[in-house]
Amino acid sequence: MTRFSPTDLSPEAKASRSVPNNPNPLCRDFQPKAEPSGFWCVNCNWNRPMHDDERTRQAIAAELDRLPAGGTPTP
C-alpha cells in the first residue's frame, strides 16, 4: 500500500519516494559535485533544494528511520 499519491509533492511524499534510492542522511553543508553534476551534494548525494528546508530535512530523517537495517523500505 502506498502512503502517498504519486502526485503528492509534499516534503514527506518526496522523502518517501527518494529515501529508498538514496538512504543517506541529509547533511547541513551543501558542497556541489563537479560539473555537470553540481546540483547534487558531494557529501550526502541529495540535491541543493533539499538542504534549504527544515521540513524536508525532518521528512528525510523520518523516512530513514522507517528503513530496516537491510535497507529495504517498510510498507
Rank of each mutant, 00 (worst) to 15 (best):
F39D: 07
I60T: 05
L67T: 09
A62G: 05
R57P: 04
G38N: 14
A15P: 05
D29I: 13
T7C: 03
T7Y: 05
S37M: 07
V42L: 11
L64A: 05
N45L: 11
A61C: 00
L64P: 00
E12L: 12
N22E: 15
V42Y: 08
P23G: 13
L9M: 15
N43H: 14
C27R: 05
P36D: 03
S5G: 15
A69S: 10
P68N: 14
K33P: 06
N24E: 15
S10Q: 02
W46M: 09
Q31E: 14
C41K: 01
L26H: 06
W46E: 14
E12Y: 10
R48Y: 11
R3K: 11
D53V: 12
R17T: 04
L26P: 13
V42M: 10
N47M: 15
P25S: 13
N21W: 05
P6R: 10
N22P: 10
P11D: 03
A61P: 02
P75D: 14
S16A: 10
A59L: 04
S10T: 09
N43R: 12
S18L: 00
K33S: 09
L64V: 04
C27G: 03
L26K: 08
P73M: 07
A15Q: 06
L67V: 01
C44T: 06
F4W: 14
L64M: 10
P75H: 11
T72M: 01
K33T: 04
R48Q: 10
E54H: 11
G38Q: 12
N43E: 12
P20F: 09
E63N: 02
P73C: 02
P73Q: 00
E63C: 07
D29W: 04
N45M: 13
P11Y: 02
S37W: 06
G38P: 00
P6K: 04
P25Y: 07
D52F: 15
E35M: 09
L9S: 15
P49G: 08
V19G: 07
K14I: 06
N47K: 14
R66D: 07
G71M: 03
C41H: 08
E63R: 06
P11T: 07
W40C: 11
R55P: 00
T74M: 04
P11L: 08
C27V: 05
T2N: 15
M1V: 09
P32M: 12
N43D: 13
V42Q: 13
K33W: 01
D52V: 05
A61H: 03
R66Y: 07
V42W: 12
M50F: 08
L9K: 08
H51T: 00
C44H: 06
N43W: 06
R66T: 10
S16M: 04
Q58D: 06
Q58R: 15
E54G: 04
P11Q: 08
A61E: 13
S5R: 13
S16H: 10
P49I: 01
P25Q: 14
S18F: 08
P11W: 02
M1L: 12
A69M: 11
G71K: 10
S37P: 05
E54A: 12
